[in-house]
Amino acid sequence: MTIRLFPLFGGALALSLLPTGCSTVAEYSTMAGQAAGVITAEQAQSINRSAVAAEKTFQDITPEQEYYIGRSVAATVLATYKPYDGAALNQYLTVLGQTLAQVSDKPETFGGYHFLVMETDEINAFAAPGGLILVSRGLLRCCRSEDALAAVLAHEIGHVQSQHGLRAIKKGRLTSALTVFAVEAGKNLGGESLAEVTKAFEGSITDVTSTLMNSGYARALENEADAAAVQILTRAGYDPRALVDMLGEMKARLAADTRGFGKTHPSPDDRIQHVSGLIGEQPVAAAPAARRQRFDAMLGLIR
């Protein structure tokens, strides 16, 4: 939560809201949140507690390090799932995904958001740290509209902006690597130091990749990504109810497929219930013909 507050209250604006006596970055961002009426005092207290507890872990990973972790995580996932080599569909996914990223709370990451289709019928999607997002052909087939596909991508952007992948890294690995960085600051890493850091790096990639591919995130993090998706869809002008439609379609298809998403995500029923509670009553304009046509043309390539 703290991370997501940052972009909203970052910069000069947040500093100008500071009361006296605040002592940590997390504290002033929650104060700004309270001042703006976005969060309650109780929520702020709980956010501060968790931020302090996490300060020596994934938050110590710099954006540049997050970028390199994300590259290796994506490459590792692509060793299992072959990339789909079709420029038109990948470009469509890129334009759609970057459009959504632009209205997220964190439109800019070190290396930006990038999207690629995986050539598998398994229903699955992965968000590597920093913004490398992979979506399977099987999951694309669960989408009956551009709005539904946007919901899938917006959910993954939600995982990226809240740095869920980095939270999977075991603390011991970071402590070891960060100590080497400190001692060797200002120099190029050599010999033993490079070997030690590489070992910590390798372990970090395993931690993140096995969470993405095998164990899945905690339910609370999936809910957080779904909430981010509803927010992103609404800001972009897509119908957030498409997330519910997509989950319904996924439920029907997952009944016959226990791999991928079925293994790593809460049941679609639980997610549908959570998401339905987040969607407002405001009617959303029906998708214009041009939106439906471009989606049908692109998805026609893989059906």
């Binding site: 954006p63 390199y68 690597a177 960085f181 060797e184 600051a185 200002g186 890493l189 490079l194």
Partner: peptide, 13 residues
């Protein structure tokens, strides 16, 4: 913010 290029970087990759 660590110095650019320090930590997990292109060399480590």
């Amino acid at each position: 913010l660590a110095l650019a290029g320090k930590g997990f970087n292109a060399d480590v990759e």
